[in-house]
Design a protein around this nucleic acid. Structure first.
Length: 522
RNA sequence: GGGUCUGUAGCUUAGUCAGGUAGAGCGACGGGCUCUUAACCCGUAGGCCGCGGGUUCGAACCCCGUCAGACCCGCCA
């Protein structure tokens, strides 16, 4: 059974509608790892719906979280905003300087992310946390948290093993300058929290307004109750022992809400080979990812991996393999046989679940087998016009009639990938202008004679795929050379490699004169 | 220091919660497609399930220990 279906089945034991949630702090650019946060939750939500369980999916944006420090992409002038909620400070312009015409910092980073989500078929109910505070919806919970602050302090100290200082308070008011830092609570008179800030100013925060916020570990537990959250997969950072999941569970119970079961996912790592290496500082954001990776492949990458396993993401081989695997699965989904061994049944059901959850919209029919990714990458490289690609695909039997929208999208993303920095060098096809000496030397006399013969006859053959193909075979027969040996020779001279894409297709894309020159081995 | 997750064929992994003779895909190798592939179809090989103990009639699975990697115990998806 697929992990999302399993999670849904566990949730079903809990009565009532399910609320699956994600939460992210918009402190900067979103990256591919955030997609796992979103998709883990969204897939469980879909599984619930597929099982007939009432469910909704909410995305809580931690827009009330303060700016922690001046990040590398920010101008030093952000110093004055440290400690201010992200919803209340201006977005950075291209130069990293605050520019209030660009809207709030939180929205600035959130908006493109939401567009990315839409592209992968995720349309959550978006909850902006600063608006929740401003609405007063949290008032009674903030009140309880303050009333029970000793118990909460005890929970956090015991479970996380860290000591809270004597001034710790489960509500952090904003001071006179709008920062949460350096503000000390001096009293509580519902609905006001009284404080004195680092400038010596005194004031009071209304807990019915966005005048302050609960610290993260408390905030998280309180929101579970407010939104009725029954499931919230969290990153392993929150999930480790003594982390915020462990403290959130008893705090949530203290506030009268049965918390979601602890559910933790592993990170996506972007180190590895090629241009994606994090050591080179070249990371890749979700928007950029989605320019080159088809959306259902992004979903499949998450769906195919259990939450507890980390994913090594790169835009090289890993992407080819994942995408090809997806295509094969679409083409021939594994059959679940009742009479087969249990393990096989489980494996087949898991794969089918991953395929189902990879679709952009729930319940849509899965599009019949498309084109292997690798094959498309090759056609995109040798066929400059899209129409010529479709033609090739029709010939190879991958396509009948017109290409689907999904396939067109594939090709355009493939072209973007090939034209960008993230395409793996080893998959690039480069046709030689001049025969490589080493390659020529590696060939025997028969092979060389064959190449010269072929080069000669190329001068006067019809310039298309099939005629060139026939010519190759003819020439091999005439030169009395085996097909294997002949093709090895062609590829060695043409692309400097022992194998490659269909030789005649490649050659048809070349200039006749240049090719015969190349094959003359001058 | 304390803790969590991960470790199964060259690679990616299923199976671990309900213990019952190790499943799959890629890659490799072989064959077929009266023309070729990085297309398509068929087949073959490849695993002391990280290591050591224990429980059991029986362990990849449960327990203890150990090694390795990732991460957490201040913020972090």
């Amino acid at each position: 059974m697929h992990w999302a279906d399993h999670a849904a089945r566990v949730l079903a034991k809990r009565d009532g509608p399910q609320t699956v949630a994600s939460g992210i702090t918009p402190s900067g650019s979103f990256h591919i790892g955030h997609l796992r946060e979103i998709l883990s939750a969204e897939m469980i939500h879909r599984s619930c719906l597929d099982m007939g369980i009432e469910s909704r999916y909410i995305f809580i944006v931690d827009s009330m979280d303060p700016l922690r420090r001046v990040y590398s992409f920010l101008d030093g002038s952000y110093e004055k905003y440290i400690g201010h909620p992200l919803a209340f400070i201006p977005a950075p312009g291209a130069d990293g300087k605050p520019d209030s015409s660009l809207g709030s910092y939180a929205d600035h980073f959130l908006d493109p992310f939401l567009r990315s989500l839409e592209a992968i078929g995720v349309v959550p109910e978006v909850v902006l946390n600063h608006e929740v505070y401003a609405s007063g919806a949290l008032e009674s919970r903030i009140h309880s948290v303050i009333e029970k602050r000793d118990e909460i302090r005890d929970i956090i100290e015991t479970i996380s093993g860290r000591d809270l200082d004597e001034y710790w308070f489960p509500y952090n008011p904003l001071g006179s300058d709008g920062s949460i830092d350096g503000v000390r609570v001096t009293g509580y008179d519902r609905p006001y929290v009284l404080w004195k800030d680092r400038h010596g100013a005194e004031g009071k925060s209304d807990i019915r307004k966005a005048d302050g916020k609960m610290p993260w570990r408390v905030d998280w537990a309180a929101r579970w109750g407010l939104h009725g959250i029954t499931c919230e997969p969290a990153g392993k950072d929150h999930g480790s022992s003594g982390g915020s999941y462990d403290t959130g569970i008893p705090i949530s119970r203290l506030l009268g809400h049965e918390p979601p079961g602890k559910m933790v996912y592993e990170w996506i790592q972007i180190k590895g080979m090629g241009p994606m290496s994090s050591s080179s500082g070249n990371t890749i954001g979700p928007l950029e990812t989605l320019e080159i990776v088809p959306p259902e492949i992004v979903r499949y990458m998450i769906a195919r991996t259990k939450m507890s396993k980390h994913i090594d993401f790169n835009t090289g081989n890993m992407l080819f393999e994942t995408a090809d695997e997806y295509e094969r699965l679409v083409k021939s989904p594994p059959v679940v046989r009742d009479d087969g061994p249990r393990r096989k049944q489980v494996a087949a059901a898991t794969a089918r679940g991953a395929l189902r959850l990879s679709q952009l919209s729930r319940g849509a029919p899965i599009e019949a087998g498309q084109v292997p990714f690798r094959h498309l990458s090759l056609l995109a490289q040798i066929r400059s016009e899209d129409e010529l690609v479709w033609e090739s695909l029709r010939k190879s039997g991958h396509l009948s009639g017109s290409p689907s929208e999904a396939l067109k999208l594939r090709l355009s993303k493939m072209r973007a990938w090939i034209n960008g920095d993230h395409f793996p060098e080893e998959s690039r096809i480069e046709i030689s202008k001049v025969a490589d000496r080493e390659m020529v030397d590696s060939l025997d006399g028969d092979q060389i004679a064959f190449i010269r013969h072929l080069g000669d006859r190329l001068k006067e053959c019809e310039w298309n795929d099939s005629d060139i193909g026939t010519l190759i075979v003819d020439s091999m027969n005439l030169c009395n050379i085996e097909a294997r040996s002949g093709y090895l020779a062609i590829y060695s001279i043409l692309i400097g490699r022992s194998n490659g894409p269909k030789a005649s297709t490649l050659m048809a894309e070349c200039d006749r004169y240049e090719l015969s020159e190349l094959f003359s081995l001058a």
